[in-house]
Nucleic acid binder design. Structure first.
Lengths: 135, 135
DNA sequence: CTTGACTCTCCCCTATAGGGGAGGCTTTAG
DNA sequence: CTAAAGCCTCCCCTATAGGGGAGAGTCAAG
């Protein structure tokens, strides 16, 4: 009935290392251990695994996912917590996107400058007048 | 005439650790060492430092910056190399921005779903129906 | 002469999500 | 019975740009 780690990994389409790691950080604990210490998982482990991946796919970190699961295991509905997490992640994403877009714009400026400048007029005193123009 | 590391760091507005690190990875080598092993820098170290920061600010990594500086120290004009680097970094940025925007869109979907779903109808069998709806 | 401020090298630590491999049991098939 | 395949724990490693601190040498002023 119970799966060992290799079977779970294969059915989940992942590596044994990953499942062991999930056990270690507490997002996917085995139901029990065999007498010889082997991790034994039930069928629901596959659902759990799928949940972890779904949560990762929307940008949550394993630490946050562990907290969601912990709430669930305490019998609470983690909805409010999840909505809050998602809101914060969204704000982080917005900031990150804005940063990258600004950087992208900066690169466009550099590209225009590079087209305007003549490589032969590149003063050896400076390292690169494209990046550091000093007027 | 020659500055020691503390003075350079202060005038550059950075930390001694950073200057030492730049020496170690080869982006900002001291002109020489004193008898007792102290790093000694000339005035141009400040320009170099400024260049490194300018290059970092447009998204280049220290490893790439080192290559630009190495080219320069070989007497070549690194313009072509820099333009190439900038082009590649721009492409990376575009891809990254697209990824983040897709993730952001995904979060918007989740947010809409969370508003539609009733937390009380959250089935205990699933961990969180906002993230992993199974339907 | 001594104290305090600098400086040196060396080593560990940060976050993330695992990967690689060693050395040693356990289980299963033939 | 034996060999292969699985499994265990433990430890190091990845990339980035440094930060923290130990222990020891150096330099200036009082």
């Amino acid at each position: 009935m119970a799966m060992r780690i290799g079977e779970l990994a294969e059915r989940a389409g992942t590596s044994v290392k990953t499942i062991r790691y999930y056990d270690r950080i507490g997002v996917l604990r085995p139901e029990e251990r065999s007498e010889s210490g082997y991790r034994l998982y039930g069928e629901d482990a596959l659902d759990r695994y799928r949940f972890v991946r779904a949560a990762q796919a929307v940008g949550l970190r394993l630490g946050e996912i562990r907290e969601i699961i912990a709430l669930r295991d305490l019998g609470e509905t983690p909805c409010a917590f999840v909505v809050d997490l998602i809101g914060r992640r969204a704000a982080e994403l917005d900031a990150q996107i804005a940063d990258l877009a600004a950087l992208r714009e900066e690169l466009r400026t550099l590209d225009r400058r590079a087209r305007r400048l003549n490589p032969r007029r590149c003063e050896p005193r400076l390292i690169c007048h494209v990046i550091d123009p000093e007027i």
